[in-house]
Nucleic acid binder design. Sequence first.
DNA 1: AACTCGGGGGC
DNA 2: GCCCCAGAGTT
Length: 344
Amino acid sequence: MKPKKNSTDFLHIGHKIQTWYSKNARDLPFRNTKDPYKIWICEIVFQQTRIAQGLGHYNRFIERFPDVKTLAEANENEVILHWKGLGYYSRAINIHKASKQIMTEFSGIFPSDYDDILTLKGVGKYTAAAVSSICFGERRAAVDGNFYRVLSRIFADDFDVSQTNAFSYFSELAFLIMPENAGDFNQAMMDLGSEICRPKNPDCGNCPVNDDCLAFALGKVSEFPVKTKKVKVENHSLKYYFVHRNNQFIIQQRGDDDIWKKLYEFLPEISSELVPFIKNAKTVNHKLTHRNLSIEIFDVEINSDLVWNEIISNKNLIVSDFEDSQKRSFPKPLENYIQNTLKD
DNA sequence: AACTCGGGGGC
DNA sequence: GCCCCAGAGTT
């Protein structure tokens, strides 16, 4: 059962959140700017990513690519290198594409209109709302996981956040409490959701709106938000051949149609002539959100120049070494393997 | 509407 | 082990 939500009854909640934010805002590098480029980058970096995890990447990214033009003129592999270890690598590829889009379609000026921002690669409803509200004063709710959590608890609303229309539903709820400044409100909701209204162990005692929170009054905070779609984890196995000779090893670049888009990897298979060169194998386990990977890595030591030269004559393969590999983005387990193998 | 995309951290 | 994190694109 949902309480009837009339339009003007809840505005004081947003004002309390705003007041709390003015005193308790987190000190973050993108907080004292309205540069749409920097806000855009930070919104992409922090999609599905904790602040603590992404801060270093954000700072390095902005330092190397301080504006749209610099980013658009950069090599895609260097952009992906700056995403190394962050995951969801299509974000890096799309950021790069979008920067070129801004150069060609918007004359290098970051678009100020919500619908224009929405046309950028990798920018969806959330990011377009965040950038347009924070940087250009548009009245949009940047509905993310924090909004789902805070609003579902305040209103004890059991709307399933895994439904496709959850964004528009909670956007309407957000407007019930949103003060004049949507940009500040959006950021306030993120900090409240992160610092107080946490997924587990919420700090309700220090919440500025605990008096207004229906879930808190009912003692049912832990029951919100409601999410029916569960994450399914499957086991998956991979094989790699670490083909090497004299501190050099063979790698190739992945495609963009699978996990680890455009990252580098060892050889997934070798010709039968190379089988006799296999020395040993070790298995590395790696957990992803949707898969448990078991990666078997065969050590293939080539002790013949003739064979080695035959291998590296293949133009699709890359001869790498430790120093070269540091300038490329590898999947985490393969990066670890390189570290562990070459430090001996 | 369902599926896919990473890696890290909290409990 | 399970869930979540400043979500978006594809099918």
